[in-house]
C-alpha cells in the first residue's frame, strides 16, 4: 500500500489524471510545523498504567511508546500533513488497512472542525501516542466558538474511532477557551499466522 495518498502534478503538466511526478506533496510547501519525537519505555510512569509485565517474548519494540508531537498554526493548509502523519504512524504500527483509513479520516475531520472554530492566531498542538495496541491523538487548541459536538462531523468522528473525549484546559490566550480533544483508535491488527 501507499501510506501517503498523494498526487502531484507539476506546473503545466497536462498529463492524464494519473500522471505522477516526484512525490513531494504541495501542501508541504506551506507553513512551518514543529515536530517533537519521543521514544520511551512503556514502563515509564504513565497516567496510572502499570509497568509493562515483562512478557516471555517481549521484544523491546513491544515495550516502546512513541510520542510524536506537532505544533503548527491553526490553518487548513497543514491538515493534509497532519492526517498523513497519522496514517503513516498507524501503518508503521501495523494497523490494518481499514483502521489506517479510519484514523486518517478521523484526524482530518477533527482538525478541520477545530481549525474552523479556532481563536485568532492560535496554535494547534497535535500529539500522537503510539502504543502497541492503539494510537491516541490529542488535539489542543484555543477556540472562539463551542465545539460542535452534535454535528454530523462529530458523529462521523465517533464512528471512525474507538473513543472521543474532550478536556477543558485552563483558559487559553486572551481569555479564549482552550480544549484538548482526544481520540483513540485501536489497531484491529490484521490476521497473522
Amino acid at each position: 500500500m501507499r501510506p501517503h495518498g498523494m498526487l502531484l502534478r507539476s506546473e503545466g503538466d497536462s498529463g492524464g489524471p494519473c500522471s505522477r511526478k516526484r512525490r513531494v506533496h504541495p501542501y508541504r510547501r506551506r507553513g512551518p510545523i514543529t515536530v517533537t519525537y519521543v521514544e520511551r519505555d512503556r514502563s515509564t510512569p504513565d497516567s496510572g498504567t502499570r509497568p509493562a509485565a515483562p512478557s516471555r517474548e517481549g521484544s523491546s519494540r513491544e515495550r516502546l511508546v512513541l510520542v510524536l508531537e506537532l505544533r503548527t498554526a491553526a490553518s487548513t493548509n497543514v491538515i493534509p500533513t497532519i492526517r498523513t502523519v497519522a496514517a503513516d504512524l498507524a501503518a508503521r504500527a501495523d494497523f490494518d488497512l481499514d483502521a489506517i483509513d479510519d484514523l486518517r479520516m478521523a484526524v482530518d475531520d477533527l482538525c478541520a472542525m477545530v481549525v474552523r472554530i479556532a481563536a485568532d492566531k492560535t496554535g494547534l498542538r497535535c500529539a500522537f501516542t503510539v502504543r502497541p495496541e492503539r494510537i491516541e491523538v490529542d488535539v489542543e487548541i484555543d477556540i472562539a466558538d463551542p465545539l460542535p459536538t452534535g454535528s454530523f462531523g462529530w458523529r462521523v468522528l465517533e464512528c471512525l474511532t474507538d473513543g472521543v473525549s474532550v478536556l477543558s484546559l485552563p483558559a487559553g490566550s486572551e481569555g479564549h477557551d482552550r480544549v484538548c480533544i482526544t481520540v483513540v483508535k485501536q489497531a484491529v491488527r490484521a490476521q497473522r499466522p
Partner: peptide
Amino acid sequence: ADIIGLQVAEHGPDARVVTVTGEVDTL
C-alpha cells in the same frame, strides 16, 4: 489544483462523466 484533479467528458448530449482524482478534503 495540485491536490484534486477534475476532468469532464461528454458522452452524447445527455451524459457527462466527471473523473475525480487526488484528495477531496476541506480545501
